[in-house]
Design a binder for these strands. Structure first.
Length: 274
DNA sequence: TTAGGCCTGCAC
DNA sequence: GTGCAGGCCTAA
C-alpha cells in the first residue's frame, strides 16, 4: 500500500491550489534544500512581486505560471505534496521549498522521499517545450487514434501504458484499474490488440480517471490535496492492492505478478489473453 | 529490455 | 533489522 500521485491526484492538487494563488503576489521564496530545485541556482527571486496567473497540467506534471510567464513545474514523484497554509504554521519535516504569498499564506512543497522536485523556467513556452515534448497525450484527452501506431510496435500493454511517452499520467494504480475494467491482460502484446479491445481500453482509462477525479483522487496512506483533505477513490479500487482477494466481477482469486520491478494485479479469469 | 539506484516510512 | 513500495532516469 503506497501513496502514489498519479494524474487524478495531481489534478486535484491543481484544482485546489488555484484559489490560493491565482491573482496573488509572491512575497518571497525560501529554498530549504537546494538540490530539490532545478536548476540548482534557479533565479526564484525573480518571482517576488509577481502574481500567479494560471496553472496547467500534463500527465503528472503540474505547472504554475506567473504573470510575466515565469513558470514553475512541480513533480510530486512518490511522496510529494503541496500545502497551502498560514505562514505562521510550523514548517514540517521534508519541506523543501516555500513560496510566501503577500496575503500571509505559504505554498509549501514537501517530499520526504525526494523523488519529486521543482523546476524553474523563464517562460511558459520553455517549460512546455522541455517538459511535455517527450510525453504522450495527457491521459484525460487520450483517444483511440493515439494508439493506432501500436499495431506495428512491440511491448506489453502494462508497460506501454506506464510509459509516459505513449500516454501521460497513468501510474501503477490506474493502469491496473483500467486493464481490469477493460478486461485486458497486462502482458498482452500491444501489436496484437484488436480495435474493439483498444476502444474498451480507452473507455476504461477515461472512466477510471474521471471517477477518481470526481472523488478527489486516491488516498492510500497520506495523499492530501492542498487543503489537507484526503481523496476517496481508494474505496473504489477494484484491482490495485487486491491480490489474493476475489475478483469483484467473477470471484476468481486475483493474481499478482512482478514485471520489470513493478507489481501488477489482475484477474486470471476475466483478463485472459486472446 | 531489464536491472539498479535514488529515498524514506512502514510492515513484518 | 530487513525488505518492500514506487516514478523515472541511467547503465549494462
Amino acid at each position: 500500500m503506497e501513496f502514489v500521485p498519479e494524474l487524478p491526484e495531481v489534478e486535484e492538487v491543481r484544482r485546489t491550489l488555484e484559489p490560493f494563488i491565482l491573482g496573488k503576489r509572491v512575497a518571497g521564496v525560501s529554498v530549504r534544500r537546494a538540490d530539490v530545485v532545478t536548476p540548482v541556482r534557479a533565479p526564484l527571486r525573480g518571482l517576488v512581486g509577481r502574481r500567479f496567473a494560471g496553472t496547467f497540467r500534463h500527465g503528472k506534471k503540474l505547472f504554475v505560471e506567473a504573470e510575466d510567464s515565469q513558470t514553475l513545474l512541480f513533480h510530486l514523484g512518490m511522496s510529494g505534496r503541496i500545502d497551502c497554509v498560514a505562514a505562521a504554521e510550523p514548517v514540517g519535516a521534508h519541506t523543501h521549498v516555500i513560496i510566501h504569498m503577500q496575503d500571509g499564506r505559504d505554498v509549501r512543497f514537501r517530499d520526504p522521499r525526494r523523488f519529486g522536485g521543482v523546476w524553474y523556467f523563464a517562460t511558459r513556452a520553455e517549460a512546455v517545450e522541455k517538459e511535455t515534448g517527450k510525453l504522450g497525450p495527457d491521459a484525460l484527452q487520450c483517444r483511440v487514434e493515439d494508439f493506432a501506431h501500436w499495431r506495428t510496435t512491440r511491448g506489453r500493454l502494462k508497460m506501454r501504458l506506464l510509459s509516459q511517452r505513449d500516454i501521460a499520467g497513468l501510474g501503477n494504480i490506474y493502469v491496473d484499474e483500467a486493464l481490469w475494467q477493460a478486461q485486458l491482460h497486462p502482458m498482452q502484446r500491444v501489436g496484437r490488440i484488436k480495435p474493439e479491445q483498444l476502444e474498451r481500453m480507452v473507455e476504461a482509462i477515461l472512466d477510471v480517471l474521471g471517477r477518481s477525479i470526481a472523488s478527489g483522487g486516491t488516498t492510500l496512506r497520506d495523499y492530501r490535496n492542498v487543503a489537507n483533505q484526503p481523496g476517496a477513490f481508494a474505496l473504489q479500487l477494484r484491482a490495485y492492492g487486491r491480490a489474493g482477494l476475489p475478483c469483484l466481477r467473477c470471484d476468481t482469486v486475483m493474481r499478482s505478478s512482478t514485471t520489470a520491478g513493478r507489481t501488477t494485479v489482475f484477474c486470471p479469469q476475466c483478463q485472459k489473453q486472446r
